[in-house]
Design a binder for these strands. Structure first.
Lengths: 184, 184
DNA sequence: ACGACACTGTAGCATATGCTACAGCAGCCG
DNA sequence: CGGCTGCTGTAGCATATGCTACAGTGTCGT
């Protein structure tokens, strides 16, 4: 049992380092040998500690989602932003350099999820939920709106703008110019 | 030049068949040997006609984007939908079985584009533009709104909802319940 | 001291992938 | 007929990937 603790500590360490890797290189970039090399070990070690790549990815994505939660929490200032300003606020936040790796990874996960990959579907669903809760906590909703519904729409809009930012920046800019019109 | 015509006809044929493949299996699924097998030929032939996989992908994506244009054109009924109904309209359209492969492929392209892949960035930008033009043609915009800006926002919203549909369906449903609120 | 056990390195396997080399076959033009 | 050209199959190469086999090293408890 003492050994188990050390082992899982090491696993956490590795998973965190690999989370860095995945966040700034992408899901496809994570193959055992190169990733291990970057950490100064060998693929052999990664398999030793995680058994299989799937298990490894599980831990890595766990780290990523924890980090996202931390990041979201760190942006929460205690004040509840009025609804009409929130879309612009989140949208700007997602374009931030710190948030960008998360967004890119999010898109990769969404694409796999859309193709029916259950593993990423589950992970993506959890992340979406984290966003929703964060939005609900951060926004002051007027009476009469169902917070969860409004938050969901905000998330959709913000995701859509981020998607366009990554594909057709000029279109994204055009969309942003209408942000204040759609308070959600 | 006679031979060139036959050759490019064959290329088109192959590219169309491969477009089917990519649309319902995904970008990752297109590797030479399996794809060729599905067409009853060998990887050797694909390389013969296209020279390189990148060149092949170029043609395949060309077919896909042509098909999307055709599809969009086919849904255009000549009437201009009022702005407030359009988001719900497109959103429903994108959830359609015929549109789904396009949407899934679109997400894959967006993810690669976000990661800085220039090839897919260009392709994705063209597709976004096709959507925008289609929306502008299909919607009646009231005076005072800049059509392109409003269309861009609509596209963002609809993309966002589609993204949530593929990752967190319940969140997507919540967002949909607010669609009429955000006329864009 | 010694054996058990956690750890780690070296090789290797099986498979996949993009691409190339070479050779055969068929048809067309002279 | 003979050669040239367009097409196609068979093999193979080089690299990558997830994973396994085997053996060695070090530490720790008895």
């Amino acid at each position: 049992m003492g050994y188990t603790k050390a082992r899982s500590a090491k696993r956490l360490l590795l998973a965190e380092a690999l989370a860095d890797f995945v966040l700034d290189e992408g899901l496809d970039a994570l193959s055992l040998r190169p990733a291990a090399a970057r950490l100064g070990t060998s693929d052999r070690m990664l398999l030793y500690y995680f058994g299989t790549k799937a298990e490894l990815m599980d831990h890595v994505l766990g780290c990523v989602s924890d980090r996202l939660s931390d990041y979201l929490a760190s942006t929460f200032r205690g004040i509840r932003i009025p609804q009409h300003a929130m879309v612009a606020h989140i949208s700007a936040l997602m374009a931030t350099p710190e948030a960008k790796p998360f967004v890119e990874l999010w898109f990769e996960m969404a694409a796999r999820s859309a193709r029916g990959d259950q593993f990423y579907a589950d992970a993506a669903a959890r992340i979406a939920e984290a966003w929703i809760e964060w939005i609900m906590r951060s926004v002051h909703f007027p009476n009469g709106v169902v917070p969860r519904n409004a938050a969901a729409m905000m998330l959709a809009i913000v995701n859509g703008i981020a998607l366009l930012d990554s594909t057709a920046p000029s279109v994204a800019a055009a969309a942003r110019s209408r942000v204040q019109t759609v308070a959600a």
